[in-house]
Amino acid sequence: MLSLSAKGLARCPSPAKLFSPFLAVGVRTFIPLKSKLPTVYEPLPKKRNGENPVSYIHRQLLEKYDPTGKRRSLIDQSNGIRSGDVIRVTYNDRSNVVGQVIAIKRCVNSVGSNILIRNKFNKLGIEVRIPLFNPKLRNIEVLHKPKKYLSRRKQFYIRNSKHDVGDVEATLRRESKK
């Protein structure tokens, strides 16, 4: 701990000045008295080694919900899944959802990422948006990767167009038979 000396800083004005006619009228002035100066402490050690709290929390959450890094690699920009791939998402209660990826919302270094998959059943389109780091998810597997991808990373335009997905499960079954 350091304490600055109070020397010379609080200087008393001379008595002639104090009782000058100008001051007697009632103009208030601040006269610093000889008093203790505030103590200045040493700076505290930096929290989180000086890391930004937001990035720190995101890193903690990612380690909690994705300790192996498997989910993160799944939505990797270069090697991960892409719009157009067919995936199967299995939950912890063994129920699953199959569909074609039409959009991936990537949250950089955070657990907010999700995948939007589209499928058709009886000519009725069904879209499910699945949070990637949901602890209820058991597994996400890629069933099919097309030879030629459509343009755009977010393929919302395929809804009700000629590029629209068919019954994904049925087409997969047909292909496996061949």
């Binding site: 389109g125 069904i126 879209e127 499910v128 948006r129 949070p131 949901n134 209820k136 009700n160």
Partner: peptide, 14 residues
């Protein structure tokens, strides 16, 4: 879109 408690949503075409 129908939002589920776990954050997933389901949207049908009609």
């Amino acid at each position: 879109p129908l939002i589920r408690p776990d954050g997933s949503t389901v949207r049908f075409d009609d």
